[in-house]
């Protein structure tokens, strides 16, 4: 599904060069739920951004379903993300002026110009069917994050990418989100890449990859 080879990312801020990723090769299979762990600053987010085509690597290549996506330009990358990828961020990322259902439908409207029942179905799965007409400001953090997950899934992406999706939540809501990820993975076969610095949550995936100073320092199936 995803093949990253010798990925490297160097941030250059004037004189200062920061090697965020040194040399990372990683294969992720279809239907896999993988967690990327490691201490703060180890390069987890950078790796996720590269895999999610939100940023360009300074070296190496990424193939997704056999297609070399590291060569896509900005627009092609955006179109690819819209179709093939779903993102869940740490912070609340919903549009405050749209209601829950509209937020979930948005990527569908962007892709196809119309929406179907799948958004409502996903809200059902997220246990938010009753909150369809509510606005993000009326929801708790955990509920907002579940709406964001529904939005990430509405175009049936090949890959769901989540960067610290539970970091802003209390432990009960965090567990809830993890349970949803697990179910999506097990029941729908959703490929998921999740970044977390919390081992306990990371262990709920099928496989864990540990980073430190921009390189892979450990890997394990759970």
């Amino acid at each position: 599904m995803i093949e990253a080879e010798n990925l490297g990312k160097i941030y250059q801020d004037g004189e200062i060069r920061v090697t965020a990723l040194d040399d990372i090769s990683l294969k992720i299979g279809k239907g896999e739920f993988i967690s990327i762990m490691g201490p703060s600053g180890s390069g987890k987010s950078t790796l996720l951004h590269l895999l999610g085509l939100l940023d360009f690597p300074t070296k190496g290549s990424i193939k997704i379903r056999g297609k070399d996506v590291s060569k896509l330009d900005e627009k092609q990358g955006a179109d690819f993300r819209l179709k093939e990828m779903g993102f869940v961020f740490q912070f609340y990322s919903l549009l405050p002026e749209l209601n829950v259902l509209e937020n979930v439908c948005l990527p569908q409207l962007m892709l196809e110009g119309k929406s179907n029942d799948y958004a409502a179905e996903l809200l059902e799965i997220m246990d938010l069917a009753e909150r369809k007409r509510h606005y993000p400001g009326q929801l708790s953090g955990g509920e907002q994050q579940r709406v964001a997950i529904a939005r990430a899934l509405v175009n049936r992406p090949s890959i769901l990418l989540a960067d610290e999706p539970t970091a802003s939540l209390d432990s009960k809501n965090a567990m809830n989100v993890m349970a949803i990820f697990k179910r999506l993975n097990e029941e729908l076969g959703q490929t998921i890449i999740m970044v977390t610095h919390e081992e306990a949550l990371g262990r709920m995936a099928q496989r864990g990859v540990w980073l430190k100073d921009g390189i892979v320092v450990g890997e394990r199936r759970f």
């Binding site: 900005e74 179109d79 993300r81 179709k83 993102f87 961020f89 990322s93 549009l95 990527p107």
Partner: peptide, 14 residues
């Protein structure tokens, strides 16, 4: 700023 980033991440063009 952040919402614009999110919209672009989702796939909206500049």
């Amino acid at each position: 700023r952040r919402i614009i980033g999110v919209l672009k991440a989702i796939g909206m063009h500049s």
